[in-house]
Computed example of a mutant assay.
Amino acid sequence: MYAPTPESTGSSVDDRPAVERLRHGDRDALTELYQRHGASVYWNAYGVLRSRPDAEEMTADAFLTLWTRRREVQLYGVSVLPWLIVTVKNLSRNRLRANQRRTADSLDAADPPSARASAEELAALDEAMALVREVVDRLPAVDQEIFRLCLVEELTYKEAAAALGLKHGSVRNRLSRMRTRLQSELGPRS
C-alpha cells in the first residue's frame, strides 16, 4: 500500500530555493519540482478529466506553463504546489470543454459520402499539415502553446490567455502574427 511521504506530497518541503533557481533559467530546478509535485499535479488533472493520456498531457502543460511564467510565479507560503494545482485544474477544465465541443461538433458534422476527400486530396492535406508543423516547431514555446490551445483545441482567446497567464490582447496579437507568418511561409509554392 502506498503511503505518501511529506516529500512526495510537497507538504513540508520549501520550494522557494528551487523556484528562485527556476527564475534564473535553471532547468534542473524544473526537474526537481516535477519530481516533487508531478504525481499530485497528475492526480488533480485526472480528477477533472478521467483520462490518463489527457491528465499526463495537462501535467506536462502545467509544468511548461510554470517554466514559461517562471519570472511571474508568486508563491503563497513555501510551496509551488498550490499554483501548479490551480494551473492544472484550469488547463484540465479547458481540455474538458474542448473535448466536449469536439464531440458535439463531430456528431453535428457527419459528412455525406459525396463530401469525403479523395486520396489525392488527403495526401495534399498531409503534406500541408507537415509544412505547418515545421513552421510551428520553429516558433517560441509560448506561441506553440497559443497555436495548440486556440487552433487545435479551439479555445477562445480569453480561455487560452487564462491557461497561459497572459492577457487576452497578447494572445490575439501573437496569434495574428503567427497566422501572417504561416501565410507568408506557406504561401503559393512552385
Rank of each mutant, 00 (worst) to 15 (best):
M1S: 06
M1R: 12
T9I: 02
D14C: 08
D14H: 04
R16A: 03
E20P: 00
R21I: 01
R23E: 01
R23W: 00
R23G: 01
H24M: 02
G25A: 00
D28H: 14
A29M: 00
A29P: 01
A39C: 12
A39V: 13
S40Y: 06
Y42S: 08
G47Y: 12
G47V: 14
V48H: 08
R52Q: 14
R52V: 12
P53K: 11
M58V: 02
T59H: 14
T59K: 12
D61V: 09
F63G: 08
L64C: 09
T65V: 11
T65C: 08
T68G: 15
R70H: 04
R70T: 15
R70D: 05
R71P: 00
R71E: 08
V73L: 01
Q74M: 07
Q74N: 07
Q74E: 09
G77Q: 07
V80L: 11
V88S: 15
N90H: 14
N90S: 13
L91R: 08
S92D: 04
N94G: 14
N94V: 06
L96H: 04
L96T: 01
R97C: 03
A98Y: 10
N99I: 11
R102N: 00
T103G: 11
T103E: 13
D105C: 06
S106Q: 08
S106K: 14
L107V: 03
D108F: 10
A110Y: 09
A115K: 11
R116S: 13
A117G: 02
S118G: 05
A119W: 06
E120Q: 11
E120V: 12
L122F: 02
A123L: 12
A124H: 05
L125F: 03
E127S: 02
E127Y: 02
E127P: 04
A130M: 08
L131I: 11
L131R: 14
R133W: 01
R138C: 04
L139Y: 11
L139M: 13
A141M: 15
D143Q: 07
Q144I: 03
I146P: 03
L149R: 12
C150G: 11
L151F: 09
V152I: 14
T156Y: 01
T156V: 04
Y157I: 01
Y157W: 05
E159D: 12
A160K: 11
A161P: 01
A161G: 02
A162R: 14
A163N: 03
G165S: 03
L166Q: 10
K167A: 10
H168A: 10
H168T: 15
G169Y: 09
S170A: 14
N173G: 02
S176N: 08
T180K: 10
T180Q: 15
L182N: 01
L182T: 11
E185F: 15
L186F: 00
R189W: 05
R189G: 05
R189H: 09
